[in-house]
Design a protein around this nucleic acid. Structure first.
Length: 561
RNA sequence: GAUUUGGUAGCUCAGCUGGUAGAGCAUCUCACUUUUAAUGAGAGGGUCCUGGGUUCGAGCCCCAGCCAGAUCACCA
């Protein structure tokens, strides 16, 4: 890799520091006793503090200098004064080490005393400083003026996602999103633990990927010599634990789906699933709205959240609308009692694209997705889904065509999905078998039969209600980010390709070497490269200082350096 | 997958009809002891995403590709 001028300068500073007997990467701990936030919240003139962080800006004025130090909680101004740092005649520490050999991005430790400047800025007067880690690569450097306006913001999404570390250093609002994400997880855990539900872990490598309709990633276990799948959901394992006798189990589950990527889908994402024995989906709706209200307050301090143009309110309770009524409301069509053909015809009349492979459930889902889904902005429970599209859900107590299922819609998107769980093993096996028929019909996302799961149900599972929440989507809503990549530290990206184009340069050198110097025209014809390749090659060689182009009276010459 | 926009200095971005590549910040040198987007003077820094084509000449035009964003489709 070719180093830029600034990177070379910083490497040169490294050896100068070492020559001054300063280790740019010392091993010893640094005994800091304050953070920048603590200093600001409990400011006391003359107080001694020890702090550490990254140098983020410098305003040097001869024998004095102001700088900003950034730690995990923010920034504080620090004041370097030559006569404070260098008590003797030797001014090396200020003039050389601080002014010349430190750079923006370096980690330093500071011992100092608090004071307020003429302009009223809370500042640390530096008495002693230690280099803790030298930064060799210049950070992108956004600047903010007195009105809070940001210049030169580091905002290219590709670079921000690929180099999230740099993004986090220079963009405080990005860090804020992930702090909120962490708060959300903590809030949910607290909510569940307070009710004595237990956090568990279940396999990520599964030989039958179950619990959802999705395409899995496949891998291979060498010792067992079997294929294994990365989980697409953890539902079936959590229900096995309910069979085993736990009253409530939950898991934050990293799931993997080998499908398309866009601003709401990443190949790996996080779901939370919870199963509670002796409950049904009505109970679960109340539980869910309580949970979300609690989480919204824990994350943002309020039940209200802004998402794009919408102001949403997570305050419980949320309206409940059956899928049948939702469709009736937005299309005027009543799906109840209709057969497959009637549904397909109705869908086509509404200009919903459907095809012959779709069964009743899928047709209803398509109509709902196209005509209704987008209309539910405030949190709304959509209930009672068709049986065909819910193979793990118990049949509706009042209508055998439906299931006891709800989804929670926010801003037209699903963020939670819950059932009164199917615990009849014979019914469950039949539902799996229907999935196999769908798969034979060409549905490549229909579920596999999990016979071990059926065996577990045969031992008996208490009536249970389960809930799944898309954590990434929820945090998108709570932090007003329409892109999933903004709420994942490291969203999946196509790998960067290494570019090494020295082949042409080698060819040029090979011809030039024995002669040391030759006419540019001769060299060019001998290498026989295209104009473009020739140009890049000779440019590359001159920038690498391996050859030089000279113009004399006799014409252009290339000389070996 | 389709459509579309973009890729130029460490960062943010200009770049005219195709005629030797520009600015601000950052970097380097000098001045400056309470500044805050510090200031003043000077200097250096480029694989114009990659490859091919057209042309006397391409950052710019044409073709192919790579990467990313947006919209749509698919998918939950």
């Amino acid at each position: 890799m070719q180093l830029s001028e600034q990177e070379l300068v910083r490497r040169e500073k490294l050896s100068q520091l070492r020559a001054l007997n300063i280790n740019p990467y010392p091993a010893a701990l640094f005994p800091l006793d304050h953070t920048t936030k603590q200093i600001k919240s409990a400011f006391e003139e003359g107080k001694k503090v020890v702090i550490a962080g990254r140098l983020m800006s410098r305003r040097i004025q001869g024998k004095a200098s102001f700088a900003e130090l950034q730690d995990s909680e923010g920034r504080i101004q620090v004041y370097f004064n030559r006569d404070e740092i260098c008590k003797s005649e030797d001014h090396t520490k200020y003039n050389e080490v601080y002014k010349k050999l430190l750079d923006i991005g370096d980690f330093i430790g500071i011992e100092g005393v608090l004071f307020t400047t003429k302009v009223g800025e809370k500042t640390v007067m530096v008495k002693e400083f230690t280099l803790l880690s030298k930064s060799l690569k210049p950070l992108p450097l956004p600047k903010t003026d007195s009105e809070g306006k940001t210049y030169d913001e580091f905002n290219d999404p590709e670079m921000r996602y690929r180099q999230r570390y740099a993004d986090l250093v220079v963009n405080p609002h990005v860090k804020e999103v992930f702090i909120k994400r962490s708060k959300l997880f903590t809030a949910m855990r607290t909510f569940f633990n307070n009710r004595n539900y237990m956090e568990v872990e279940t396999p990520i490598l599964q030989s039958i990927p179950g619990g959802a309709a999705a395409k899995p990633f496949i891998t291979h276990h060498n010792a067992l010599d079997i294929p294994l799948y990365l989980r697409i959901a953890n539902e079936l394992y959590l229900k096995r634990l309910i069979v085993g006798g736990f009253d409530g189990v939950y898991e934050f589950s990293k799931n993997f789906r080998n499908e398309g990527m866009d601003r709401t889908h990443n190949p790996e994402f996080t779901a939370m699933e919870i199963y509670v024995a002796y409950k049904d989906y009505h109970w679960m709706m109340e539980f869910t709205e309580q949970l979300l209200e609690y989480c919204a307050i824990a994350v943002n301090g309020t039940t209200k959240a802004t998402f794009t143009k919408h102001e949403i309110d997570f305050k419980a309770p949320y309206p409940r609308v059956t899928m049948t009524n939702a469709i009736k409301q937005f299309t005027g069509f009543d799906i109840s009692g209709k057969n497959e053909e009637e549904l397909r015809k109705a869908a086509r009349e509404m200009h919903v694209t459907v095809d012959e492979t779709m069964g009743k459930g899928k047709l209803i889902d398509e109509i709902f997705g196209a005509k209704c889904e987008g209309n539910f902005i405030q949190p709304t429970f959509i209930t009672d889904y068709p049986k065909e599209m819910s193979p793990l859900c118990k049949e509706h107590r009042d209508n055998p065509e439906l299931t006891e299922r709800f989804e929670l819609m926010v801003c037209g998107k699903e963020i939670a999905n819950a059932y009164t769980e199917l615990n009849d093993p014979i019914d469950q096996l039949q539902r799996f078998e229907e999935q196999v028929k769908l798969s034979e019909k060409g549905d490549d996302e229909a579920m596999f039969i999990d016979r071990d799961f059926v065996r577990a149900l045969e031992y008996g599972m208490p009536p249970t209600s389960g809930l799944g929440i898309g954590m990434d989507r929820l945090i998108m809503f709570l932090t007003n980010n329409p892109s999933i990549q903004e709420v994942l530290f490291f969203p999946q990206m196509r790998p960067e390709r290494k570019v090494e184009l020295t082949e042409e340069e080698k060819m040029v050198l090979h011809i030039l070497k024995p002669l040391k110097k030759m006419k540019l025209e001769d060299l060019k014809t001998q290498v026989a490269l295209s104009n473009k390749k020739w140009d890049t090659a000779i440019k590359g060689l001159t920038t690498k200082k391996m050859a030089q182009v000279e113009k004399t009276e006799e014409g252009l010459f290339v000389e070996l350096k």
